[in-house]
Design a protein around this nucleic acid. Structure first.
Length: 967
RNA sequence: GCCCGAAUGGUGGAAUGGUAGACACGAGGGACUUAAAAUCCCUUGACCAGUAACGGUUGUGCGGGUUCGAGUCCCGCUUCGGGCACCA
């Protein structure tokens, strides 16, 4: 019987949907297993062959776990808020919801073709009110919480207010934007506005005046992970620094927990390393510096406390508020001019251009260790956002300070024995300290004690200085993190609205019972003429406090009716806790029920791209930890195991158009020159330059252009002239790039499903190579997988189309083949090494074919083993073998090692490490027996003749090696 | 600059320190067929020898080392990919 995949797949697709085969409920009699894919953003280009790579891998695992008897949750949904939909709306005037839902329909249709075991009853979409209800709810909880450093967890803000009422800031140790100090009386004397301002300093979701990445082109702020090399991740537009009032999340408060948690989860080392870098913990010392002749002091942060004796100047960040206070009147003009210059530079310019710039403030700081006065400079190489925004400069042992000192001709004092600092600084943390102090009178005494580090190693010196600074109250030991708070507002339309209104300028939460606050309708998706965000276009967008409803903003009276927030939340808001919502997606009373949370706990296996390492995967962990503190989430870490599937790249194809014409030249006729300045190739024909133009992958055959197809593809090619090479062909140029609609290199899975079927697609995507590896899409090998399925199919049918399986006992060979396969496939699935289990199937099938296997038992077990990989195929055969229920609930076969035992094994017999002949040994032979048998074998004699055996190494089931030398 | 990871035939890729190249694609040859598709069989790292049959040498980016034995472990490079980057 023919393997008719079209009918089979259509039939089972419909049957599974009808019978709810993949619907899952909280079954307390079964152990749970939660498999999750990073949900996709539904883009206009539809699903391409890269998307299913991870979905198939996780689907195989989910099916495997179900076959093992687990209750498997494997949901899918859509990250539906995003910039492309908004830009589409601006361009066409069509509401982003329309295009988004259309795209979702396309995705759903495409996903359905591939036979995933998703429970679609649990689908979530981040842009629907029943979903973002809980995004808004979580935001309000963060607003009403602060982070206690001592207990390392979020606490209700009321607790903090109580403390302020009783003791002011005395004795608090909480995460904050800046250290404040006030008494209980001072607190009580504050008006509402002042109190609100103070509390913002402590809330986990807070409104902060911060430096933000402002992208003028997009008209919005961006989070740090959305800025790559100084330009926006989406669109590649320039980004500048700007001070703005923005909603922020105090992610930094969780730095230590985010770091510690990495030890408890099974993620790849590279992702963990990336997150560690991003969190950037550094242990150091803060030291108070007095400014000479002024009532000002400031704090510097250093990880090299041992170098205090080598300080020759101090540097402040240009954005630091100290600059204004410290600058002397003589230097005022120069400093102002410098600040102006710094402000004129974009983030990108600052990143690329590291030339030394700076200005003297006119003031001097006193080094508390040496008593020396050192000039205070202002320079952009010191960042306002890290540490205290002020540093002590030790040019001898820091390359940046060194460059600055050379430029401004400042002294350099070497502090490490043998370090040559005449040409460059010595930055290594190894060596013996000297010149610390240079002479006894160069070390200030505190309570009779002077610091002396001479002769110590750098490590000892750091520890000693820390002790000295702490003991004599010159500063404190401090842990700093690079991780910054997340900017949480965007000046966009297509995002979650904030459930916040402004009561006399004070941000106030809309009552919890009134959530969700739905995104208002607008007709114009651009910012308003007055520069407000797009929500400024919404007319019905004011909060009526008395009637608890949204009303026309014409009614705003600032007494009972107030304006609502115009910002919306960023993309990561909706994607940070979606895995919790899948556990109980229809609950309208809570994010999820206590029972659902208790049952499903957290995600056991998470599959998605590694590009989310510093974005989603940090925010999600932060968000989950916060919900864990509230008791909503039951596990500290959301994703226990993480697999990062590689990207499937596309082959982009180019034709070459002579500038200013509609004439295209074959690639092999051109001269290619590399342009160093532009860092790209340029193409010439007889001195005239040509532009590379993308052409659709469908207009291309191998490396040749199908001129008929390209003419039909786009009007601009309709009357184009194509200059062919001598063979009469048009050769194109191909490059491997990320699949993208604009590059016309997207390969759609639908075409593959149509030609070969979903099961072949599934096998092939897994067969392509290790799941974590990126690779270009290439259909060349897909026939092999298709042939394999056909071969396997034929095992089940006799020549006259009867089911081949009979109730006969499996032969010894059948059992051996089968159990070898069970062992291999089980181990491979556990290790996500699917690309090696598919060859194992191929071998097993051809072995069973040779054995003319007719044993029903053996054939049934093979069907079960194949079920995770080729579900339609297996389901069909399972029913043809006479079963009524789905193959998904069959028991996963267990390997019986007994059947794998061999009577004899063939081993290589080596002399001096070279294999000379093969020999059958009893499989259970000891090394001594192996040696004896090998030595007495007739073939061995010619190698042993006249030789003396020095040593014999016999490795059971591996090898016997004789080390010989002439006797 | 710092931190990871990788490098194996024409191609994708297999190999707990133990006969390198599984499996697949492609290529070549053959069978079946009026023909095509489909299917099946043989060969396929390179070089040499041989061809009735059996062989030899060499070979996992480069240079060393450990070991009876290294694609695998160690040291030093090269190239490519990824992450972080005036983070004090």
């Amino acid at each position: 019987m023919e393997y008719n995949f079209r009918d089979i797949e259509k039939h089972w697709r419909e049957t599974w949907a009808k019978e709810g085969t993949y619907h899952v409920t909280e079954d307390k009699n079964k152990k749970k297993f939660y498999v999750l894919n990073m949900f996709p953003y539904p883009s206009g280009a539809g699903l391409h062959v890269g998307h299913p790579l991870g979905y198939i891998a996780s689907d195989i695992y989910a099916r495997y776990k179900r076959l093992q008897g687990y209750n498997v949750l494997n949901p899918m949904g859509y990250d539906a808020y995003g910039l492309p939909a908004e830009q589409h709306a601006i361009k066409t005037g069509e509401h982003p919801a329309i295009s988004t839902f259309q795209n979702i329909d396309t995705y759903r249709h495409q996903l359905d073709q591939i036979g995933f075991c998703f429970d679609w009853d649990r689908e979530v979409r981040t842009c629907t009110p029943d979903y973002y209800h809980w995004t808004q709810w979580a935001f309000q909880k963060m607003f009403n919480s602060f982070f206690c450093n001592k207990c390392q967890s979020a606490q209700p803000i009321e607790e903090l207010i109580k403390h302020f009422d009783a003791k002011g800031t005395d004795g608090i140790d909480v995460a904050c934007t800046e250290e404040l100090s006030f008494t209980a009386d001072e607190w009580k004397a504050m008006d509402e506005q002042a109190k609100s301002q103070v509390l913002m300093n402590y809330r986990i979701a807070f409104m902060g005046e911060t430096m933000v990445n402002w992208c003028p082109e997009l008209g919005t702020v961006l989070a740090n992970d959305e800025v790559v090399n100084g330009v926006s991740e989406r669109g590649g537009f320039p980004v500048e620094q700007k001070k703005m009032r923005q909603w922020c999340l105090r992610v930094s408060a969780y730095s230590q927990r985010l770091l510690d948690g990495l030890e408890t989860i099974q993620w790849s080392d590279s992702i963990k390393e990336t997150q560690k870098n991003w969190i950037g913990r550094s242990e150091g010392t803060e030291v108070q510096i007095k400014v000479e002749d002024q009532e000002v002091d400031f704090t510097i942060f250093t990880t090299r406390a041992d170098t205090m004796f080598g300080v020759t100047f101090f540097v402040l960040a240009p954005e630091s508020e100290l600059v204004e206070r410290v600058t002397t009147s003589e230097q005022k003009a120069a400093v102002e001019e410098y600040i102006k210059y710094v402000k004129s530079r974009t983030e990108r310019e600052r990143m690329i251009d590291h030339t030394v710039t700076g200005v003297f403030s006119g003031a001097y700081g006193i080094n508390p260790i040496t008593g020396d006065k050192c000039p205070i400079y202002i320079s952009e190489y010191v960042l306002a956002g890290y540490g205290t925004g002020a540093i002590m400069a030790v040019p001898a042992h820091d390359s940046r300070d060194y460059a600055f000192a050379k430029h401004f001709n400042l002294p350099i004092i070497p502090l490490v024995e043998g370090a040559d600092v005449s040409e460059e600084s010595y930055d290594a943390k190894e060596g013996i300290v000297m010149n610390s102090p240079v002479s006894e009178d160069k070390s200030v005494k505190y309570e009779g004690e002077a610091l002396n580090l001479n002769g110590k190693t750098i490590k000892e010196a750091i520890a000693e200085t820390k002790r000295f600074v702490k003991e004599h109250h010159l500063g404190r030991v401090k842990v700093n993190f690079r991780l910054r708070d997340a900017i949480f507002s965007r000046q966009r339309y297509w995002g979650e609205p904030f459930p916040v209104y402004y009561k006399n300028g004070i941000p106030t939460m809309i009552p919890e019972e009134c959530l969700p606050i739905e995104l208002p309708q607008v007709t114009d998706f651009k910012p308003t003429k007055t520069g407000e965000p797009p929500l400024g276009n919404a007319q019905i967008w004011a909060w009526d406090e008395t009637n608890k409803q949204i009303v026309d903003k014409a009614l705003i009276d600032e007494k009972t009716i107030f304006p609502i927030e115009l910002y919306t939340m960023p993309g990561f808001a909706g994607s940070s806790a979606y895995y919790l919502r899948y556990m109980d997606p229809k609950n309208d009373k809570a994010l999820l029920s206590e029972e659902a949370a208790e049952y499903w706990q957290n995600v056991d296996l998470y599959v998605g791209g590694s590009e989310h390492a510093t974005g989603h995967l940090i925010y999600s962990r932060f968000w989950n930890k916060f919900l864990f503190d509230l008791g909503v989430s039951k596990k500290e870490e959301p994703f226990q195991k993480l697999i990062n599937q590689g990207m499937i790249q596309g082959w982009s194809s180019f034709v070459f158009r002579l500038k200013g014409t509609n004439t295209y030249y074959s690639y092999d006729l051109l001269e290619v020159k590399y342009d160093d300045a532009a860092k790209k190739n340029r193409y010439f024909f007889e001195g005239q330059e040509l532009d590379p133009i993308y052409t659709d992958i469908k207009t291309v055959n191998g490396n040749l252009l199908d001129i008929e197809k390209i003419r039909l593809w786009l009007p601009e090619f309709h009357d184009a002239e194509f200059i062919l090479n001598e063979q009469g062909q048009y050769v194109i140029f191909q490059a491997i790039e990320k699949m993208s609609k604009s590059k016309y290199n997207v390969v759609n899975p639908d075409d593959i499903c149509e030609k070969y079927g979903a099961d072949t697609l599934r096998l092939y995507e897994m067969f392509l190579g290790p799941i974590e590896q990126s690779k270009p899409w290439d259909v060349a090998g897909i026939d092999g997988c298709f042939r394999f399925l056909k071969k396997a199919w034929n095992l089940y049918w006799t020549k006259d189309d009867q089911v081949a399986a009979q109730d006969v006992a499996p032969t010894k060979e059948n059992l051996k083949t089968l159990h070898k396969l069970i062992k291999k496939v089980t181990e491979d699935i556990e290790a996500f090494s699917y690309n090696t289990s598919i060859p194992a199937f191929m071998v097993a099938v051809s072995e069973l074919q040779q054995q003319k296997c007719q044993s029903r038992e053996t054939l049934e077990q093979l069907v079960i083993l194949l079920a995770p990989f080729a579900p339609h195929f297996s389901e069909e055969l399972w029913h043809k073998l006479g079963h009524e229920t789905t193959v998904c609930d069959a028991p996963w076969p267990v390997c019986n090692e007994e059947y794998l035992k061999e009577d004899t094994v063939t081993l290589g017999v080596q002399f001096n490490g070279k294999v000379r002949f093969s020999f059958d040994f009893p499989a259970d032979a000891t090394p001594a027996q192996m040696q004896e048998l090998a030595q007495s074998a007739p073939e061995a004699q010619k190698y042993l003749e006249g030789m003396q055996v020095v040593k014999v190494i016999a490795v059971p089931k591996r090898i016997v090696n004789f080390v010989v030398k002439p006797a």
